[in-house]
């Protein structure tokens, strides 16, 4: 790992100012479980010369729930989110998604903000410099994507543009199904709020230099909402999702009045299957409805040459998530 200066921030404003300072290549560090790996692998063409520790900012790890909903600070650790009583009670798929991330040791340090903002897992993007140099790609400002004609078994089947890496965050998928809003703060007190799926672009995120995710707000759950989060991995725990699905379904008198179907690891951002949601609304939810909705959800998928299998796979996970939500 290349050497760098290390600064402990005590306020968000201070951190944003440091990160935005012209002439420095600063990066924010929260749990570090993703960033340190990326630095050791030497994947950045311009490695940071300054790391800004966010953990020293007081209060940024708070988890607060009340009638207005849930507010989770960006520095809240995944383990704490997973076992938070209010989250488990009222936003269970958020808790399940946090619990589905990596290993216990990682969840003990990894933060919500870090999970949302982690780098993609594309194995071309991540190729370690120690094996003959890192691989240049579109995402790094290079001229082309080496993955597209390569091994794309884990790549996007939706919304890829130039880069086909998928958003690897599990919490983002659950949060998108919960209509969560991400709070971004930037230099000079700038502050904006975005739906979680709008944070991501095919080549990265919308974050401006010096801008940080500082919190996530989740509205209170609808009274009759039922939900499920399913994550398909090569191995049960610890792996990144091949496909994940968060489903939230509101049933009144046996009729679906509202639905969220969000697919993870299929595109550069959590992919909301709007047409499938619309198909569910207004009818009863049973196996046939679930199968049909799943069919609709994947109808627009555009797999690459190496990941066509993700389409039927995602279809079955969507179907199962809808049915699991009924049980939930």
């Amino acid at each position: 790992m290349r050497s760098f200066r290390h600064v402990r921030a005590t306020t968000v404003a201070e951190a944003c100012a440091l990160l935005a300072e012209p002439g420095t290549r600063a990066r924010a560090n929260a749990g570090g479980s993703d960033l340190l790996g990326a630095l050791k692998d030497g994947i950045y063409p311009e490695p940071p010369d300054l790391l800004v520790d966010l953990k020293t900012i007081p209060g940024l790890d708070a988890i607060e729930a009340d009638e207005a909903g849930l507010r989770v600070g960006a520095l809240a650790r995944l383990a704490d989110i997973a076992r938070s009583e209010p989250i488990r009670a009222h936003w269970p798929i958020f808790s399940q998604a946090a619990q589905a991330v990596a290993s216990p040791q990682i969840r003990n340090v990894a933060t919500l903000g870090g999970n949302l903002c982690q780098e993609v897992r594309c194995w071309y993007f991540r190729y370690p410099a120690g094996l003959g140099g890192s691989i240049d790609c579109l995402r790094k400002g290079g001229p082309r994507c080496p993955a597209v004609k390569g091994d794309t078994r884990y790549h996007a089947i939706f919304e890829g543009r130039g880069c086909f890496a998928v958003c690897p965050s599990d919490t983002a998928v659950a949060l998108a199904a919960l209509d969560a809003i991400v709070v971004l703060e930037g230099p000079g007190g700038a502050r904006r709020e975005l739906p979680v799926q709008d944070v991501y672009t095919p080549l990265g995120t919308v974050l401006e230099p010096g801008e940080l995710v500082t919190a996530v707000r989740v509205p209170p759950p609808a009274e009759e909402a039922r939900s499920a989060f399913l994550k398909f991995t090569v191995r049960e725990p610890i792996d990144f999702a091949v496909v994940s699905v968060a489903a939230s379904i509101t049933l009144r008198d046996g009729v679906c009045t509202d639905a969220r179907l969000v697919l993870g690891a299929v595109g550069p951002r959590p992919y909301r299957a709007l047409e499938a949601e619309a198909r569910l609304i207004g009818g009863p939810i049973d196996e046939r409805a679930a199968v049909e909705a799943a069919e609709v959800a994947l109808a627009g998928a555009k797999p690459l040459r190496g990941n066509a299998y993700k389409v039927p796979l995602a279809r079955s996970i969507v179907m199962r998530a809808i049915l699991a939500a009924l049980e939930g």
Partner: peptide, 28 residues
């Protein structure tokens, strides 16, 4: 449920999308 690819990892194509459409920066 999906077209079979050729023998071996990363083998011949079961291209659901032609890779030429996916050249650098191409908009799908």
């Amino acid at each position: 449920k999906v077209p079979a690819r050729g023998r071996g990892a990363g083998g011949t194509a079961a291209a659901a999308t032609d890779s030429d459409d996916l050249a650098a920066g191409a908009d799908r």
